[in-house]
Every structure is written in structure tokens, then in C-alpha cells.
Amino acid sequence: MWSFLIATVLLPLPLAVSTWAQESRPPDASRPSGRAVLERIDENLVLDSATGVSEMIIHGRSGTRSIRSRFWKQGADSSFVEYLSPPREAGKKMLKLGDMLWTYAPEPADRIITISGHLLRQSVMGSDLSYEDLLENSRLIEVYDAEVTGEEPVGGRPCWVVRMTSRVDDAAYHSRTVWVDKERWLPLREERYARSGRLLKKTTIEEAQRIGERWYISRATFRDMLSSGEGTEYIVESIEFGAEIPGHIFSKAALRQ
């Protein structure tokens, strides 16, 4: 689910894509295992390449601003983002390769900064999430034990409620609850909890769209539940699946180009 978040808010990459809808299986009458649900979500993430344009709307103390970016994505581990607007942010780039993260600040700074140590704590573009979140292991199944605890509709769509509990020491969140669309296998709502059980963060999906045989999330809102802010909205303006992405995009050299 982490990657889903990355998809929606952080590195605006639409990873949460589902093709299962096309099989139009009737929703399982019997409850699937948590593991099965996670596997299905994880499998979605390793879909082939995608590129597109997305917008992030950040509600801060001092007002609202919107950031547009173009993204390229290959598999679960490689992604590249170039910011388009506002002019202030245009030309900034970000590259994620596995568990490494770099940003590039264009001229006049012209510097590539490895995001590590303290910098990982910084917020991405002023949103409620930090760079560190991007380096999270994107395969939920490697991090969490899952259990389907019930079913509940979200936005009129029937969902499985999946409760996940981390089984490694370095998971950013101790537990999560996801509402997964029974039919499309898209996560429609997610809550993340601290070890103490306190709700820390909450994501809601406002809109999902279909391109060809794929479903993808086109509008979501992310909120830090400890602070009184209004959260960050994420909108996919356009997306293209299976595009040819030159391999050199996913390299440090591409940051300076």
C-alpha cells in the first residue's frame, strides 16, 4: 500500500492500477485471505511502464498551491519525475532507483543532491509526506502480515477491509487498514497507524478511471491526521500505459539533462 501512496501523492506515479476488473469475475462470495489480497495489490505494482502528467494540490497554513509534474515509471523500483509548474519548481527533477533517491535543482544551483540522512525527513514539495517515505519497501507482502477483517462499502463500492501489521522492525507504520474494491482490486481508502494504535495518516480515493482494460486512481486526498491541515490532493491529468521509456531516463545523468 505504500507504493500506492507513492503513486498517489509522493512521486506522483500511478502505480495503483488494476487489470483484474476486465476479468469481471463476480466478487468472491467467500472472504479471500489477507495474503491473497496483498499479493494482488503487489502484482499490480509490477505492471510495465507508464508515463503521464499529474497535479498535486497542497493545502498549507499559508494557502493552497498546485504543482504539476511529468512522470516516468518502470516496474516497482524505478521512477523519474520532472516538475513542470509553478515556474519556481519547474525543472526540478527527482529520481528513485531502488532504495536510492536523488533530486536535482536546475540552474543556477545545478546540483544533484542525494537525499539521505536528515534530508529524508524533509517534506516533498511541502506535502504532508517526506522523502523518506519514498524509500519504503514497496512490496507490502514483504513487510506486512495481512488479514481480511470484514467488508464495508466505500463510496458506494463494496470493499474488503484488510488489516495489516508489520512484521519487520523498520516499517514506517506499524499497521494499516485498507479498503480494497472487491471488483476492481483498487485500494479506495487507507489508514495508517502508529504502534500505539493512533491513526496517523489517511488516504481517500475520490475518483478512479479506466483506460482500456486498466483501472487507475485519478484523484485522491492524503491527510496527516495529527495536524489540523487540510491535506494534499493528487490528480492524474493524463496517463499512458506501456509507453516506450528509454532506459537512460532512470539514471543520475538524466537528472542534469
Binding site: 498549507g60 519556481r88 535543482a105 545545478d110 546540483r111 534530508l119 516533498v124 511541502g126
Partner: peptide
């Protein structure tokens, strides 16, 4: 000397 800071909007600021 590159300043790596935070803009008034919370973005990462990088300035030489």
C-alpha cells in the same frame, strides 16, 4: 556554498 533548506511552502530549497 549550497543552501539546502525549505521554502516557505515546504518544498526543498536548493540555492548556490
Amino acid at each position: 556554498a549550497t543552501l539546502i533548506g525549505s521554502t516557505a511552502y515546504g518544498s526543498m530549497a536548493v540555492h548556490n
